[in-house]
């Protein structure tokens, strides 16, 4: 088996697994850049995945056909956004410990979604499988390019490209627009930002709600491209992996994008390695734990130091130094 044919297996699989991670990690960047730690990404993904599962199902019943999963992505973004409001109110307005609130958000997400599944589908533990997924397609024209065509542009879902584009878009918003500057300023030095007339509370609410929208979309993409139905274990760890990607990407959108792709690569390798010579002798445990070990190393400063935004996790109380 040649290297090229190996890459033809791994890269499409990597792009597929990376897309939900990238979206969710970008959500984490928005929240933490505004100064609110978001451990609740896992829960936001669960809400997004659940919403996508039921909205696709009902839209299909109403005859939306192949458009159903795409519409569901938008609905899931709104659902994630609304759900993240709980985290925003509790951790920004009520000044609760942000990590505590995030942990509770994860609990609530699994509780509420599984409760609703049982309520909507007469006690069943999972939603029916959706009929229309966002399928892997060959992109007309581009898949004919020699070498990179089959690697990058055949058997891929459009969502992967949207995710990659979104990484750059979020970078532009955060670093090249006045809005981005304000968002980052309340995460670095909220008191100074407040003095300059920036509404710290408002900016942080926006940061958290954007993380909800992105996390919800991430979960939804996972559902409509990979899982196909929702149950209690559909989202188990992807949100925390996205959190790791955000840290590994050093709280930078493009970094999060790169980390998301890299973690997707590690994950797809752990699945596909059985088909690949040499790698099939490597225990998959190394590939499975690689993202987490690497993130620890980055945090410890062995692979370039990652620094969180200065005021990340600190509630802002007006007039308090």
């Amino acid at each position: 088996m040649s290297l090229l044919s190996i890459l033809d297996i791994i890269i499409p699989s990597m792009l597929l697994t990376a897309a939900p991670l990238i979206f969710t990690a970008l959500g984490g960047v928005f929240s933490e850049r505004s100064g609110v730690v978001n451990i609740g990404l896992e829960g936001l993904m669960a809400v997004g995945a659940f919403t996508a599962a039921i909205s696709t199902y009902y839209l299909e019943n109403m005859g939306a056909g192949a458009a159903a999963p795409w519409l569901s992505l938008l609905i899931a973004a709104v659902a994630g956004c609304l759900f993240s409001l709980i985290h925003a109110v509790v951790s920004i307005s009520f000044r609760a410990d942000q990590t505590v609130s995030g942990v509770a958000l994860n609990f609530l997400a699994t509780g509420v979604t599984v409760f609703l599944v049982k309520l909507l589908f007469q006690g069943a533990g999972q939603t029916p499988y959706i009929e229309h997924r966002i399928d892997k397609v060959d992109i007309p024209g581009l898949d004919q390019i020699p070498v990179i065509g089959p690697m990058l542009f055949s058997h891929v879902a459009y969502t992967s490209f949207i995710a990659i584009a979104m990484g750059f878009l979020v970078w532009y918003i955060l670093f090249k627009t006045p809005f981005g500057l304000r968002l980052r300023s309340v995460g670095e030095h909220p008191a100074a930002a407040d003095t300059l007339g920036i509404n710290v509370t408002k900016m942080r609410y926006i940061g958290v709600m954007l993380s909800g929208a992105f996390g919800g979309t991430g979960g939804a993409i996972y559902l409509v491209t990979i899982a196909g139905n929702y149950n209690a274990t559909t989202i188990s760890g992807q949100g925390f992996l996205a959190l790791a990607a955000m840290v590994f990407g050093k709280w930078n959108p493009v970094g999060a994008l790169g980390a998301g792709l890299f973690f997707g690569f590690a994950q797809s390798l752990s699945i596909t390695s059985q088909q690949i010579p040499i790698l099939d002798r490597l225990p998959d445990v190394y590939l499975l734990i690689a993202p987490y070990v690497l993130t620890l190393l980055v945090l410890a400063g062995f692979v370039g130091r990652a620094e969180a935004p200065k005021a990340d996790g600190v509630p802002y109380i007006k007039g308090q130094r």
Partner: peptide, 16 residues
């Protein structure tokens, strides 16, 4: 699963 919801709510309330 309602129990998980109740536990989550209790954490939210204690946190607040």
């Amino acid at each position: 699963d309602l129990i998980n919801i109740v536990i989550a709510l209790i954490i939210f309330f204690v946190g607040s």
